[in-house]
Design a protein around this nucleic acid. Structure first.
Lengths: 110, 110
DNA sequence: TCTATATATCGATAGATTTCGATATGTCAA
DNA sequence: TTGACATATCGAAATCTATCGATATATAGA
């Protein structure tokens, strides 16, 4: 599996897309603080079991879409903008029809 | 299923990613003509059965990643750059951390 | 240390997905 | 119309995935 395979597999589940959306605009309940969202918030937002949320977060972190930091008992999650930016470039490249190998540097249309 | 779900599911299979790559830089064999690739070329390139390729192409077309045109007995496939551009914007939006709803028009960082 | 809480892991199950061979459909050329 | 070829669809097998309850691990507080 390439890292692209891992990335797109991570994005290919509706629950995980909802999690990414929630990380962008979390509510002001519970442990959420300064855009850092804890797992229990996500669990309540999605209505899935704790085990399932833990599983999804592991996949999102492995795909480098989300960063995880442990604060005491809580895990706090945030979007990783670099990965989104790199993926935006991947799509922009293909939208522009340019081949990946023989491209002059700096020409990514992102 | 939203159209994003369909799109990301279409991208979440290694065989389909290889097909998208091949559509960008097809060889000069067989029916390939002016960047239009026929199903038999893809079949030979990937080493999968004809039924499997047909299945994958259906998914890529449904996700609007690929356009299909029938020429006589042959199906010719091409990348749909609009979809890649729109998806690039989707990622760029999230890389920039902007929310989708209350955003002034024209501020997408793509 | 003991208890409560937050998250991770395990094992199982239901449902989805990939893949194939077989067959159907559609199109061109005799 | 008939035969050959390209692609689509069908039905089945194997594998993968999402989900859960149960349990383990880790941390904070008493």
């Amino acid at each position: 599996m390439t890292s692209n395979d891992i990335l797109f597999k991570a994005l290919s589940d509706p629950a995980r897309l909802r999690i990414l959306d929630f990380l962008r605009k979390p509510g002001s309940d519970c442990c959420t603080f300064e855009g850092k969202v804890c797992a229990c918030d996500i669990e309540r937002e999605l209505g899935l079991s704790q085990a399932t949320i833990s599983h999804h977060m592991k996949i999102l972190v492995a795909a480098e879409l989300v960063a995880a930091t442990k604060l005491g008992r809580w895990m706090h999650y945030t979007i990783r903008p670099e990965t989104f930016a790199a993926t935006a470039a991947w799509f922009a490249e293909r939208a522009a029809g340019t081949a990946p190998a023989p491209r002059p540097k700096g020409s990514v249309a992102a």
